[in-house]
Design a binder for these strands. Sequence first.
DNA 1: AGAGTGGGCCTTTTT
DNA 2: GGCCCACTCT
Length: 668
Amino acid sequence: MARTFSLRHRYTGDGIDFADRLNEQQLAVATEPGGPMLVIAGAGTGKTRALIYRLAWLLDHGTAPFAILLVTFTNRAAREMLHRVELLVRQDARQVWGGTFHHVANRVLRKYGARLGIPADFTILDRQDAADLMASCASELPIPGRGRRFPNKTLLLSMASFAANTLRPLSDVVPARYPVFADAVESITEILEIYTRRKRQRHLLDYDDLLTDWMHLLEQCEDVRSRLAEQFVHVLVDEYQDTNAIQGRIVDLLASQHRNICVVGDDSQSIYSFRGAHFANIMGFRDRYPDVRQYRLEINYRSTPQILALANASIEHNSRRLPKQLHAVRTSGMKVAVVPCADHFVQSRFVAEYILQLLDEGRSLLDIAVLYRSHWHCMEIQMELQRRNIPFQVRGGLRFFEQAHMKDVLSFLRLCHNPRDELAWQRALCLFPRIGTALSRTIWSHVAAALDPADAVRRLQSCPGLPQKATRSCAMFSSLVEDLARIGAPAEMMDKVLDCFYDDYLVSHYENAALRRQDLRALAEFAGQYRTVEAFLSDVALTGDFDGETCVAGPDEQEYATLSTIHQAKGLEWAVVLIPWLADGRFPTDLAINTPEDLEEERRVFHVAVTRAKDELYLAVPQVWSNRGGHRLLMKPSRFLTELTEADMLETMYLDDDLPHLTAGQLS
DNA sequence: AGAGTGGGCCTTTTT
DNA sequence: GGCCCACTCT
């Protein structure tokens, strides 16, 4: 049981009446002067509010903004929180260090990385780039034993990433997590060594390097550590349950001087173990900080009692968790509905038609979300919504900056900023006619030693062995790169690439050239905020998507329903939530039911999904699945539903004749 | 030889 | 829709 809460710090200064705007526990969190703090905050209990008021309180009580570090799960969360803080304290909060671990790492390493031999002009690899580089490293090794199973590039990257994030050696991670490849661990290690070397040579850092190098910097450079630990008088970490070993270590090092560390999280919402996250950090916090003050936020302001009853009852089935109950403030609501659907086509039609019905009842599309376990679960639903002209926005899946046309154009900026960036050179070169992978590799080998773009172009022009057919392309490429290097401002460079040839390339290579051009012009517009290519590229690599005030990728409509993976819906809420695919094998996915740990995480994902809903919750259960070959397979309802024994917790909603069965003939 | 294209296969979650 | 491989065309 948590300690009793006194109002020792009740603050009623002329600015903000903290006691009036927060409940007892939130107030205690906001006004604790310092020291280690652990805040266990269930879904919808106003933890963001507590954090915002804590920030406001700190600033109000004389803490300098640059002495505060606020680590959040997304950059957008940090931006929004600091914006709300500014409205409260009416002072500039922009100097607060806020953002994701990776974002702050980028900032720190640009400044101090040289101490570890990291060049200040490094380029950040996103997942695809890292995978491509990994593939090229793997191809340098002879193919190990014919017919033997060997991990592909994505899997290799996952292994490396998991090892890095959990601070465990590969020789330990592979047998434990990928037993199929246990006997290949030597080849795997060798490939990863090549990969690491290649990144160093090319001035490239992947996501894991940002964290690893940051930690090494703090561990190995005493002066840098004491400087940063001195600077950050207060360290606040949101979503602490989703931090991993390396992030936990970084936080501890940063807080080592002042020990004013406030971590906020909910073990029941820990859903990133595949990224090495483990709520061991939360569980072990008390051991690392014996003098910790612990707080518990359990009063839920978001959802109806019916929704919370379901959320509580479901998570009870997990054995490893901190005991906690969500208590409803709201007093009434509708029952949670289970909707059996003949198959997933009917399920899609139910979702679409029900959204129309909600609109008739006066709901706004902005109040409605469809949340699912895996991206591909929303394919049919998207088609169905499109057919009925229901505007929607999809979160997740292929992200804005990850689309091919984005990466094509960005590769030109990348090779100008960092001429050692092999991936960028190859991607850019291959866009020109008569230049493919083989020729681009030849060219790269002549350009690799260049120190700057102009030097690279000189080398390219004197490159021996260029086929006659490719000379025109090479000349075009050279003059474009020369021009770009001269321009230097990211937005104008993008325009130049588009004008010079990429607009034409789009038309001849894509059906939807106009749409893609629109995207690119929007990206150029966005680039206008940045003075340097470096700052622009870093943000692109670390953001993955436009969001918030820069939402240009979304639909033109003012109102739209939201389709999102549950992971991407974390921290958000909607009045009405529909969750499709509640069938065993889909949710929980059959990839995550082999160990009790996996299944418990899967149940936490369900918990997150359910607790996004404020008023109404619908769980669709397809009973038959028609696979590609037209075979119809029976599906069992999700165990997350059948395990709920309380009889009247759920209400079955039967679809009537407005949704006639589709016959197999109509499926194709 | 190497560039470009078409078909078959699979689909967890992400900074 | 993405990825990989094999095939064809130059």
